[in-house]
Amino acid sequence: MTTLDERLSAARAGGRRALVPYLMAGARPDWTRLLEAAVAGGADALEVGLPFSDPMMDGPVIQEAGLAALAAGTTLDSVCAELGALDLGVPLVAMTYCNVVYHYGLERAAGRLREAGVLGTILPDLALEEIDSWAAVCDAGDLATVLMVAPSTPPERVARVAARSRGFVYAAARMAVTGAADGLGDGVAVVERIRAVSPVPAYLGIGIASPEQARAAATAADGAIVGSALVRRVLDGASPEQVETFVRGLREAIDAP
């Protein structure tokens, strides 16, 4: 199995702008079909949310999806069991909060996720200063630790965050929690700050909702992350075909000459 770094670097070397949709595991019984639909629509990687009761970095849409997933009994084990049975053909990155993996046990959680085919993790409440123990476990297990750079991150700190990030750097386009918004916010400046200090791919997310925004984000950065706009459709009952169509719309916008 290759690492997230290898997979994403290979894509970038090929000149491809990455599209990374986010879906909440367990938000609907057919959630794995939605992952497949997103891949069919042109996703280069998938961000898979593992629900947490108190998601401080998430806005109302992903909160709602998380609560639905928890109400359905979704756990790290149940997600890994279902993911392990899939062959999606794109890298998976799990996004959750510290307590989910700390409570499970760091080594055990890293092992379980890797075994299920997950290549990276995003723990938005795990800042650089606190990452050492989780990073050591992930490094040893070929699990990428994706870190976030925010508009508020000072340049000196951008360098340290980027150096510790694996796979890609999550560039936050604005000072906000997840949720649809207009434009790219501070995204271009954030990506420039990352580019100035690091060769690691930067994917722009937070408030990227439309095909136009996805194109702009994937042009400014190496890729675009689209979460709440997709999850909103899932919560509103979009079929797998409709999810595929939405993702394809993003893909085509990004790839348009």
């Binding site: 401080m56 970095m57 510290c98 938005p124 409440d125 795990l126 800042a127 650089l128 200063e129 606190e130 870190l147 976030m148 750079v149 925010a150 508009p151 508020s152 991150t153 000072p154 700190r157 965050v161 936050a172 000072m175």
Partner: peptide, 21 residues
Amino acid sequence: GRGRFGEFGGRFVPEALVPAC
């Protein structure tokens, strides 16, 4: 220095809030 009282405390916040902390 990391805001720990024994094994407790610390600073587990999104990157956006770290500079403010």
